[in-house]
Design a protein around this nucleic acid. Structure first.
Length: 227
DNA sequence: GCCCAGGGGGCTC
DNA sequence: GAGCCCCATGGG
């Protein structure tokens, strides 16, 4: 049973960590994309791959003038595989992209604004039914393309907050998500920035899966939290 | 050469 | 439901 006092303490800790990250790294300007559609394509391509590789794949799609719902929906899948090859798992990801394009065209006539007019819960449920879209990808699309109020959880979130002692480490995706959404103010901009900062911290210095970071700003956080 | 990257699905037991 | 395996390229 968590008392109200402990509630306040956790809230304060989450905001304190956020402020530390923001003061260290600043505004991350996420998502790094020009359009909502580009966010979706990026979210699908970045699955278990470094963002640098995704940029190459998206640049290839742009260079072929195919960064469009209908164009990607209709284009040859073998061509698509070649274009996204740098992003890895290209056979699977090409098929995922095709499935998502079909979904967008059939459900919303390819109109993303139409999709995001629907409620968060409805879109999320539909997205999760599309093969290749799991919780993190669905939530990234909802938050960063749809500006919906949903906190995105990823492997870094689990790793960092477990090391900070705020998570046990065996929580499910939705439990971690509920944790953040319970203790953080309901704010799309905060959710946007917080997840981006976590990824920044994670990819900057905490990418090692070893239990302790030797020299990274996470240790600063750990020390600060211990105070 | 080895490890890891802004996950997700399918299979086994 | 937990524990594996697969997907495949590219940078450190």
């Amino acid at each position: 049973m968590i008392t109200k006092m402990e509630d306040k303490k956790v809230k304060a800790q989450l905001l304190e960590i956020y402020n530390l990250l923001f003061s260290k790294y600043g505004d991350q300007h996420w998502w790094p994309a020009n359009t909502k559609f580009e966010v979706i394509v990026g979210a699908l391509l970045t699955q278990f791959i470094s963002w640098k590789n995704v940029v190459k794949a998206i640049d290839n799609i742009k260079a072929s003038n195919l960064l469009d719902v209908h164009k990607l929906h209709e284009c040859d899948i073998e061509l698509l595989k070649e274009l996204i090859r740098p992003a890895g798992f290209f056979n699977r990801k090409a098929s995922i992209l095709k499935s998502v394009m079909t979904f967008l065209v059939e459900e919303y006539e390819g109109d993303l604004d139409k999709m995001f007019l629907t409620s968060l819960d409805v879109i999320r449920e539909k997205l999760l039914k599309v093969k290749g879209i799991g919780p993190e990808t669905a939530d990234s699309i909802l938050l960063y393309a749809g500006m919906k109020e949903i906190f995105v959880v990823d492997a870094y979130t689990m790793r960092i907050f477990t090391r900070l002692g705020l998570l046990k480490g065996d929580e499910k995706y939705h439990q971690v998500q509920e944790f953040f959404m319970k203790y953080l103010p309901k704010d799309v901009d905060l959710y946007n920035q917080y997840h981006a900062l976590i990824v920044k911290l994670g990819s900057d210095c905490c990418h090692s899966k070893k239990p302790k970071c030797d020299k990274c700003s996470l240790q600063d956080l750990c020390q600060h939290q211990a105070l």
